[in-house]
Design a protein around this nucleic acid. Structure first.
Length: 574
RNA sequence: GCGCCUGUAGCUCAGUGGAUAGAGCAUCGGACUUCUAAUCCGAGGGUCGGAGGUUCGAAUCCUCCCAGGCGUGCCA
């Protein structure tokens, strides 16, 4: 059953109780059938009567009639009527508005917060870029989705721990070092001015060379072995790549407003690998195979490799060590890996290996996969263009600036352009089901940088416009209003949407799906725009004006809260 | 070959068992001396990839097939 707003919960429980008692039905069954009609104008809640037809041996239409007749409306549930095989329940709109708007007004920035996760810890592994490689658009997804999920779970009352599992270990570093130490590839000037692109090119060049010269791969593996063994020269090189990268990452995270509780990358587990191997051996799940040490995890899944034939560890070994460390350190309720969908198999293997090692908490680990930017290369290969994150953010900000200069004369136009541009990028990334690939044509920035329609700037604009009306109202927002004045269809639609925010947030947590919040904000914003078209807020009549001000201030509050979850700024002016 | 993901309007996507399948973009037509036009209003546009099945009821659940993407032991 989907989580729901407590305000709704109480009403639905009441309806189910009464219907079940009067018709001699199971309360739970009635309760589970109650739904919100897709179309407005059919009442606030509906009960389809088809399932009762068989047991009661009557037509569903007739049963609906009987229920509607037997049901006694109360102070909140105003009316109840049969429409064909459905019973439609309508709440007293004024009473409903009073409750919903009251809760939002008093809740403020905390409206939507819940306690369903209290006492539980959720660990999120997200962003996790590779050191010595540039932060490209692909990393944006993990960063933005992970950061949004952290805020979702925090709102739901969980203790959250954000971990950046930096890709700072592995044979790739052997490759980097092998490439870096080639005398004929050195370029000190370039390295000083443009280190990250320089390293990226070295790495790409090395990977191309490998295809022609198999000896290079061996050279790379040997460098990594030296690193794992603590060789001085290897450690120093590693440190150089690490430090340069961290400065770069820090700059990007600041721009995106993303933070982490821990930067424990793969290298952090270097001294925790032996234990993994020992545990696997002592639990008799590790076996020798083709010179390597592996854990087999089923017929349809390739085995998990703990040690390669040259004795070095793998991605799996480090992930096993990390999972064990996190369990011991954080005692998590959930461990979520926000990593690309293409690594589905890797995590399947990882979780199976944990199970085979006898860890019951393996069932609490989950891979939160997401789609890619299919037209973008991470290395600039394969005829695809490399697109850096900075390139996108800069273009977004430039466009926002251009747009702003067309209309407004506000102060701090460049500050606004920055939050709008970055907001557009983040919102776009979180707009659809995370498993879907992001539609992006590198030749056509409009695919991801549109500012009209279903976009971040549209929601931000709506927020700014609402804030502007409230500013012009010029008096404090009060809940001491006549709620009978908020009962037009547009009022009721808005109230109903506002009421559903906490439920949608809980659903986003349950489904591990930030797009539920994004979609909700678009629905709410569209309803609000429609409201402005239909009703003027700053009318002469003081009671009506006060009532509408409260309503739109609540809408503004919920938009602000939702945008905050997504990591998108809610500007007061734009 | 096997495994996973995706398939809904021209395009990009919502819709995870209920009433007439919805948005944005694009196209066409309309609204700025009126609380911000980054907006709003209206129109056209659909064999929900295909075929079976379960159900009172299927875009939604099951089976098979088709198409695209990703992955498939010594990169991570």
């Amino acid at each position: 059953m989907s989580p729901m707003n407590p305000l709704v919960q109480v009403v639905l429980d009441d309806i189910a109780q009464q219907v079940a008692t009067r018709m001699d039905l199971e309360v739970a069954e009635v309760r589970s059938l109650l739904e919100v009609p897709r179309e407005s104008g059919r009442g606030d809640f509906a009960l389809p009567c088809f399932p009762f037809a068989r047991v009661m041996r009557r037509a569903p239409q007739q049963i609906a009639e009987e229920i509607a007749t037997a049901f006694e409306p109360g102070p909140i549930i105003q009316s109840c009527q049969a429409t064909g095989p459905f019973v439609n329940f309508t709440l007293d709109p004024a009473e409903r508005a009073r409750r919903v708007l009251g809760a939002i007004h008093s809740g403020g920035d905390d409206f939507g917060s819940q306690d369903i996760g209290s006492g539980k810890t959720v660990v999120l592994d997200y962003s996790s870029p590779n050191i010595a490689k540039p932060f490209h658009v692909g990393h944006l997804r993990s960063t933005v989705i992970g950061a949004a999920l952290i805020r979702v779970y925090r709102s739901l009352g969980y203790q959250t721990i954000g971990v950046n599992h930096l890709g700072d270990w592995g044979t790739q570093f052997g490759h980097m070092m092998a490439a870096y130490s080639r005398e004929d590839w050195k370029d000190p000037e370039r390295e000083a001015s443009d280190p990250i692109p320089f390293y990226r090119e070295l790495y790409a060049r090395f990977n191309l060379e490998i295809e022609r010269d198999a000896g290079l791969a061996e050279e790379g593996r040997n460098w990594f072995r030296r690193l794992e063994e603590g060789d001085q020269e290897a450690r120093e090189l590693w440190k150089k790549f690490h430090d340069v990268s961290m400065i770069e990452f820090d700059r990007i995270y600041r721009k995106l407003g993303v933070t982490f509780d821990h930067f424990t990358g793969e290298s952090f587990y270097n001294d925790k690998m032996d234990r993994v191997v020992e545990e696997a051996r002592s639990r008799e799940v590790a076996v020798e195979s083709e010179g390597a040490l592996v854990i087999s995890v089923g017929d349809h899944v390739p085995p998990v490799m703990l040690l390669k034939s040259n004795g070095t560890t793998t991605y799996h070994t480090r992930d096993l060590a990390a999972a064990m460390y996190r369990q011991e350190t954080f005692d998590f309720e959930m461990l979520l890996y926000v990593v690309g969908e293409e690594q589905r198999l890797h995590f399947q293997q990882l979780f199976h290996a944990l199970e085979r090692m006898g860890f019951e908490w393996a069932a609490r680990c989950r891979h939160v996969g997401f789609g890619r930017y299919p037209n973008i290369s991470s290395r600039g290969q394969g005829g695809k263009r490399f697109v850096g994150l900075d390139e996108i953010l800069d273009e977004a900000i430039r466009r926002a600036k251009e747009k702003a200069s067309e209309n407004s004369d506000i102060e701090d136009a460049s500050g606004v352009a920055e939050v709008v541009g970055i907001g557009a990028v983040i919102f776009n990334d979180l707009k659809n089901n995370r498993k879907k690939d992001v539609d992006f044509d590198p030749e056509d920035w409009n695919t991801i940088l549109e500012f009209r329609g279903d976009t971040g700037p549209y929601v931000q604009y709506s927020h700014a416009r609402t804030a502007s009306i409230i500013r012009k109202h010029g008096a404090p927002v009060s809940t001491r209003i006549d709620y009978q004045l908020l009962t037009t269809p547009e009022d009721r639609t808005l109230v109903s949407l506002l009421e559903s925010y906490p439920g949608r947030l809980a659903m986003a947590g349950q489904e591990v799906e930030p797009s539920l919040v994004t979609r909700y904000l678009l629905d709410l914003t569209k309803a609000l725009s429609h409201y402005y078209h239909k009703h003027k807020v700053l009318v002469e009549d003081p009671p009506l004006r006060a009532a509408r001000i409260l309503l739109i201030d609540c809408a503004r509050q919920v938009i602000a809260n939702g945008l905050k979850i997504l990591g998108v700024a809610a500007p007061e002016r734009m």
